[in-house]
Amino acid sequence: MQLKSQVDYFGRALLEKGTANPDIVVLDADVSASTKTSYFQESYPERFIEVGISEQDMIGIAAGLSLSGKIPVAAAFATFIVGRAWEQVANTVARQSLNVKIVGTHSGLTPSADGESHQSIADIAVTRVLPNMVVEVPADAAAAGWATRELLDRKGPVYLRLGRGSFPMIYPDDIELEVGRAETLLDGDDVTIVSTGSMVHVALSAAETLMEEGLSSRVLDMHTIKPLDCDALEKAASETGCIVTVEEHSVIGGLGGAVTEAVSERKPVPISRVGIKDRFGQSSRNYQALLERYGLTPEAVAGAARKVVESK
């Protein structure tokens, strides 16, 4: 599979949308070279606001721009933009349901070498809990480009979660998904693997392994965490009888939490959550090695699936 960068596709889609729409204003907190808002900055310096290392101020400024009719896109590392500035995101942006697009890059364990201070294990949890927010977690670079274009055309607050580095391409470059609708990548009836973001390709590869063993998996790309596609989950629960969730995020409050909440109300079935087990990340020069240490591998997902199928 081809590897491509989510932030590169985000940066290019942002430039494209910004060229077409002069109301788009981009803000960054001294990390534009990493978030790739630099592409926009180079072309439209007057509509690019370098706020410096002050994420809380950045979110407030984005709110003010939105109150004056602009479409602000604020980007920085996930843990800082919605972690450090969470109360600003909540009290200023979400509460007013402002048309502010918040982009958190370097999510999950992807900034592996930088270590736990820069990794983000809770950003999905803290954004999806907020009323009015849309939370979008694309699986690859193509989906990141789609999400950028799509979310800039929608009104209202959005959190877009991107990873650092390159990920295997699942979708073609011109993919069109639907916000709030899970994408079925593989159909099956023994188990459903619900995955999001960087873990979608891991889920697919686990499904291949299971297939060889005679277990048929349905693989859902739950790219929108909020609003959650509860219908697809209910259907999966009814038709496959058990669910595995996979995410590069804490199993508390993230995709696993969201799916468990929905399924337990709609159609309770056994669920196994694969993700970061209530712990922080750590430094690793090698990203893959870190994923292995945290059990975010096709083998771990396949193992969870075998177990949950047994408990049906």
Binding site: V25, E46, R47, I49, Q56, D57, M58, I59, G60, I61, A62, A63, G64, L65, S66, L67, S68, G69, K70, P72, E87, Q88, N91, T92, R95, Q96
Partner: peptide
Amino acid sequence: VDAKTGSLGQGLSMAVGMAYAAKLD
């Protein structure tokens, strides 16, 4: 009322955004 407030310390940032938008326009 031009902006929701209540959580202290956040109004000036919003004003900066409004003022920047005015300059752009």
